[in-house]
Simulated scan of single mutants.
Amino acid sequence: MRALARRWLWLHEEIIAHDKERERIVTKRAPDLMASHGIATLTVAKMLI
Score class of each variant (00 low, 15 high):
H18N: 13
E21Y: 04
A35G: 09
R24H: 00
P31S: 08
S36D: 10
R7K: 09
L42K: 13
L11V: 11
T41Q: 05
R2L: 09
I39C: 03
M34T: 03
T43S: 14
I25G: 06
M1W: 05
W10M: 10
T27C: 07
T27W: 00
T43R: 12
K46G: 03
S36V: 07
W8D: 08
I15A: 15
I39L: 11
S36R: 13
A3E: 14
G38V: 04
L33H: 02
M34S: 04
S36C: 10
M1G: 15
K28L: 08
T41R: 07
R2F: 06
R2Q: 10
V44I: 09
K20C: 11
A35P: 07
A35D: 08
W10F: 09
V44M: 04
R6L: 13
A17H: 03
R22A: 08
I39A: 01
E14R: 14
I16C: 10
I15T: 14
P31M: 07
H18I: 13
M1R: 10
I49H: 14
W10L: 11
E21G: 05
E21L: 13
I15S: 15
A40N: 07
I49Y: 13
L33Y: 03
T43C: 09
S36Q: 14
M1N: 12
A35H: 05
H37K: 11
E14G: 11
R29I: 07
W10N: 10
E23R: 10
R22F: 00
T43A: 14
K46W: 02
H12N: 09
